[in-house]
Amino acid sequence: MIRTFSSIDVMYLVAAARWTLALTATAFCGSALLGLVLAIARISPIAPLRWLVAAYIYVVQGTPLLVWLFVIFFGLPLLGVSVNPWLAAAIAFSVYGSAFLGEIWRGALISIARTQWEAAASLGMSMSQQLRYIIIPQSVRIAIPPTVGFLVQLIKNTSLAATIGLVELTREGQLTAAGTYMPFAVFTTVACIYFVMCFPLTQWSRSLERKLDVAR
């Protein structure tokens, strides 16, 4: 049945955007947890650990997100885990995002002068105390602008989850386009919704970056 593209469809698309946001939030939490571990492992004194994590980051950054999505979506069932687009997408985005957040945060951590580590160590603090009280609080300021930039990338990249059948904004757009035969109007609307979600974050990231430049 062919229907016209009406304001109801726009409402449906806006409603579908909440799944894009939910997937972004899930993926960001997974990426952040794993990414923090990776960032700290990358600056650890244990060389083999550093190499292992560097290799992981190299492999993940050297392969497209879409391939990760497919490998996990089709690979999980082989391990006996039932096929669930949400789980597959959450894992794939977390794996992918952790490699990028790990690198961003490593950069922020190593931007803190070595003398800060030494001053903290000289007061008898353990490695984890030095990280927790001295290094991480100082590197957060530096890490925020690129982390917000990463969030924008993540929102856009969740569109790829449409390819494994997860009904978020892009997939909803595909379905609506198929139903209305008005793909141009539909995908323009979809693009507008993405823009509304991403643009404020992009601007925020930029203004934070400018502030940081001035502060230096």
Binding site: V152, K156, N157, S159, L160, A162, T170, G173, Q174, A177, P183, F184, F187, T188, V190, A191, Y194, F195, C198, F199, T202
Partner: peptide, 14 residues
Amino acid sequence: NTPLLVQLFLIFFG
């Protein structure tokens, strides 16, 4: 500020 996939759909389907 928009996904590549949506840009591709706009061009190919739109």
